[in-house]
Amino acid sequence: MKKKTKAATFFMIFIMMYLLLPLVVTIIYSLFQKWTDIVPEQFSLESYMIILQDKEFLLCIVRTLAACVIPIGITVCIILLAMFVTTVYFPSLDKYVQIICMIPYTIQGVILSVSILTAYIRAGSVLGNRLVMLFGAYSVIIMPYIYQGIKNGMSAINVKVLTEAAEMLGAARMYAFFRIIVPNIFSSIIVSALLATGIIFGDYVLVRNLTGTSFQNMQIYLYQTMKSDSTKASAVFVIIMLITCLITAVTLYLKNKEREK
């Protein structure tokens, strides 16, 4: 038994080292100005100082965070309302809602962006705005992940019993759903929102095709930096990873705090 435990521990350590190796090498590369031999040379933090003093990069961070918060908020509200209607009033429609929410799995970013441009670029309304199209596209591509997270959370609790108990105490169905059911699946919403954040953070195709260079996010900034300075590009990648880890840590903290309550 001990041999199996040691073998499993060794295997997990090997997998972790294999997965972290590219990140470690990128960090080392970003801290040295020259790496043409086995050992890197000329340690320097100049790349980080230049990036953190660049106002355009700071604006890219703000734009990327806005591109995460707005579509995730919209999608969560839509999915929760759809789940409320199908769970409380029309349970037979749940399978159709699931099919609709899973469709974006099969849509590639290039196809989605071209389709949106073809349909709305000449529209004389707010739908023709490129930012609106971008946030709408993000809301579509993250829909399967948000739906599956909320669905898993609702499957873990007895929604029907909790709703009936709240009604027996005089609560309306909508009140029971949003004040009793939703808080009980809050951790599932947080996890699915975190997954959606990772997808939006890594997007380049949609934002490049729909907005061009008018809405420069962190991935476009990284791509443009790679053309001029590989060391600076490595530093940008490390900062993106740190921001992602920070968002993950805050999200997990809120999830654990909610669980404690």
Results as ranks from 00 to 15, higher is better:
50 I>T: 05
9 T>R: 14
15 I>L: 13
89 Y>M: 11
51 I>N: 00
38 I>M: 13
6 K>I: 15
14 F>S: 05
26 T>D: 11
14 F>K: 09
79 I>G: 07
23 L>V: 12
7 A>H: 06
61 I>G: 03
56 E>C: 10
13 I>G: 04
82 A>E: 07
77 C>K: 13
56 E>H: 10
64 T>I: 04
36 T>E: 14
68 C>Q: 10
26 T>E: 12
78 I>E: 08
62 V>W: 15
32 F>D: 03
85 V>C: 07
30 S>N: 03
54 D>T: 03
63 R>G: 03
76 V>F: 08
43 F>W: 11
80 L>H: 05
14 F>V: 11
35 W>L: 01
68 C>W: 02
74 I>Q: 01
86 T>L: 08
72 I>E: 00
33 Q>V: 08
69 V>R: 02
30 S>E: 05
78 I>M: 10
10 F>W: 14
18 Y>F: 15
61 I>K: 01
27 I>A: 06
50 I>N: 11
56 E>I: 13
50 I>M: 10
36 T>P: 06
67 A>V: 03
51 I>Y: 05
76 V>A: 00
75 T>L: 06
29 Y>I: 06
82 A>K: 05
58 L>V: 09
37 D>I: 15
21 L>R: 00
28 I>T: 13
13 I>N: 04
49 M>L: 12
83 M>H: 06
64 T>W: 06
55 K>F: 13
61 I>Q: 05
84 F>V: 02
79 I>R: 04
31 L>I: 02
9 T>H: 12
20 L>G: 06
34 K>A: 13
71 P>I: 11
26 T>S: 08
76 V>H: 00
81 L>H: 09
43 F>N: 04
77 C>T: 14
25 V>I: 15
40 P>T: 10
19 L>P: 05
82 A>T: 07
70 I>K: 01
74 I>G: 02
47 S>H: 08
75 T>V: 08
51 I>L: 10
30 S>D: 05
34 K>V: 15
75 T>H: 11
25 V>P: 00
54 D>N: 12
13 I>D: 13
84 F>P: 00
14 F>W: 11
40 P>Y: 10
89 Y>V: 12
68 C>R: 04
27 I>V: 09
23 L>W: 15
7 A>Y: 04
77 C>R: 12
70 I>R: 09
57 F>L: 08
43 F>D: 04
14 F>G: 05
49 M>E: 11
61 I>S: 08
11 F>K: 12
73 G>E: 05
50 I>S: 04
64 T>R: 01
25 V>H: 10
12 M>D: 03
54 D>I: 05
39 V>F: 10
18 Y>G: 04
25 V>K: 14
